[in-house]
Amino acid sequence: MPLRYYEDIPVGDVHDLGSYEADRSELLAFAERYDPQPIHVDPEIAAETMYGGVIASGWHTASSCMRLLVDGFLAETETLGSFGLEELRWRNPVYPGDEVSVEVRILEKTESTSRDDRGYITSETEATNQDGEEVVYWRATNIFLKDPDE
């Protein structure tokens, strides 16, 4: 399948990126290494918090969703990366065993005024748990190559 260019990605497109199960050992290992707050790594302390148990680090949730975004959309495009996130929100906690579903929506496109070989696409990525509750949301602008044959 040929890679998709800037011109091939219409505003309004929605891509279902699939889902993943929040694996307890994986989220604990991630938190131990990168975000060792007690709510992420200590079941006894976490049980006494408003969460009632260990929850995934928001960074783990975002990283897991990013993997689905790459596999389900970006890997099939001529993307040059991103400027970063304009907004990132962790709306609800992710618990071990949760099923997290992810989708990306294309919001707007802007042609580069300084480089005629590219354009910018703003999208929002949203993930929900098995109960339909939003667990993470982000808005980002990615750089996409234009089709050289256009």
Rank of each mutant, 00 (worst) to 15 (best):
M1Y: 13
P2S: 12
Y5H: 15
I9H: 00
V11C: 01
G12R: 00
G12E: 03
H15D: 02
D16A: 08
A22R: 07
L28V: 13
F30R: 12
R33L: 13
R33G: 11
R33C: 10
Y34N: 07
Y34D: 05
P36E: 14
P38E: 09
P38V: 10
H40E: 13
V41P: 09
D42H: 10
D42G: 08
P43R: 09
A46V: 07
A47I: 09
E48R: 15
T49H: 05
M50C: 11
Y51W: 09
Y51Q: 05
G53Q: 04
G58N: 07
G58W: 05
G58K: 07
W59F: 11
S63Q: 03
M66C: 11
L68R: 14
L69T: 06
L69W: 07
V70N: 07
V70S: 05
V70C: 07
L74V: 12
L74G: 05
A75K: 15
E76S: 15
T77V: 08
T79H: 12
L80A: 14
L80K: 12
L80C: 13
G81C: 11
S82W: 06
F83W: 15
G84P: 10
L85Y: 15
E87H: 12
L88V: 15
R89S: 11
R89C: 10
P93V: 10
V94H: 04
V94P: 02
Y95V: 03
G97P: 08
V102A: 10
E103L: 04
V104H: 00
R105V: 05
I106F: 01
I106T: 01
T110Q: 14
S112P: 01
T113A: 10
R115C: 03
D116V: 01
D117H: 07
G119M: 05
S123R: 04
E124W: 04
E126N: 07
A127L: 02
N129A: 04
Q130H: 13
Q130C: 10
E134A: 15
Y137G: 01
W138H: 12
W138D: 08
R139G: 05
A140P: 00
T141H: 05
N142V: 01
D149Y: 07
E150T: 04
